[in-house]
């Protein structure tokens, strides 16, 4: 039982990253209808910017997080200008192919600038005010502070996002766009600025996830491939465009993977998620938490 809790905790940590990456992805899909295959690269860039900010520029953690948010949001801005703005009136396939291209371009840019060797962010938790005072043992569960930081950040950021979506004008226009772009436009929603904001938020969330994960794992140019696949899994499980669904599905996927590698076989862990996806697509295409909508 003690070990079971530890496995769940491990799953929550990786699941939290899936949530951060997938929520951005599902926003971009839900609001703009762009299937963004370059989303994993936003994660990768976040990791590298974090390393540059902390290891090379020696910035304190909070400043580094701000730098990562800014840099990732900037990448989102550029991505919108490439993937959405010029292509929005065309068939969705255009932006899919285009996002593939962007992913490859960003991977190769990272390869040229940062080199192929994996790198790691040396995050000195003892220097982070609140975090360093956190315990590392929660009953039978052991979580180093770097790991605790990830679900913590996830909860805060997703909480903020949720509040923004729910209570602010920007949030309302985002949701209006998601429901019906034309009607939203008729009601005075500035479609273009909504698109930009969506991309920036999505990219910033993925960037933060990348930065946090690079303190326990490694970053390398193609690290985004797997994470993007996982995020797509989460998005499909949670229902395309469903933020709350993505949050729950992300945690579920993390925990399922962790338990699979603990009790079944480690080599099966990546398989499980994709089997789920195929089953969901076959039997519940609206996602585990999505509502089936009749097309008129």
């Amino acid at each position: 039982m003690d070990l079971f809790l530890q496995y769940v905790a491990n799953g929550v940590v990786t699941g939290s990253t899936y949530v951060l990456v997938a929520v951005g992805l599902t926003l971009i899909f839900g609001i703009l209808g762009v299937v963004n295959f370059a989303h994993g690269e936003f994660y990768m860039i976040g990791g590298y910017v974090g390393i540059v900010a902390i290891t090379m520029l020696k910035l304190p953690v909070l400043a580094a997080i701000a730098v990562v948010l800014l840099a990732a949001a900037l990448v989102g801005l550029v991505a919108e200008a490439i993937l959405h703005k010029p292509l929005k009136s065309r068939d969705a396939t255009n932006s899919i192919i285009s996002s593939f291209g962007l992913a490859v371009a960003l991977q190769n840019a990272a390869l040229l600038v940062m080199g192929p060797q994996p790198q790691r962010l040396n995050l000195d938790v003892s220097k982070i005010p609140v975090l360093s005072s956190l315990p590392t043992d929660f009953g039978p569960v052991f979580l180093p502070q770097q790991r605790t930081l990830i679900p913590l950040t996830m909860v805060i950021l997703i909480g903020v996002l949720y509040a923004v979506l729910k209570y602010t004008w920007t949030g309302r226009s985002l949701r209006a766009m998601a429901q019906h772009a034309t009607v939203a436009r008729l009601c005075g929603v500035r479609v273009q600025s909504v698109a930009v904001v969506t991309f920036m938020v999505g990219s910033a969330l993925a960037g933060i996830a990348g930065m946090l994960m690079s303190s326990i794992f490694f970053v390398y140019p193609v690290v985004g491939n797997m994470i993007a696949l996982k995020a797509f899994t989460v998005v499909i499980l949670g229902g395309m465009g469903n933020v709350a669904g993505a949050a729950v599905a992300g945690l579920l996927l993390g925990i399922t993977e962790s338990l699979t590698s603990a009790y079944v076989a480690n080599s099966m862990r990546d398989v499980v998620g994709f089997v789920f996806v195929i089953l969901v697509l076959l039997f519940r295409p609206q996602g585990l938490f999505g509502k089936a909508a009749e097309r008129s």
Binding site: L3, M226, N266
Partner: peptide
């Protein structure tokens, strides 16, 4: 190859 999280396997 390229997998990142080994914590549950190592815990076991």
């Amino acid at each position: 190859a390229g997998e990142q999280d080994f914590s549950s396997m190592l815990t076991r």
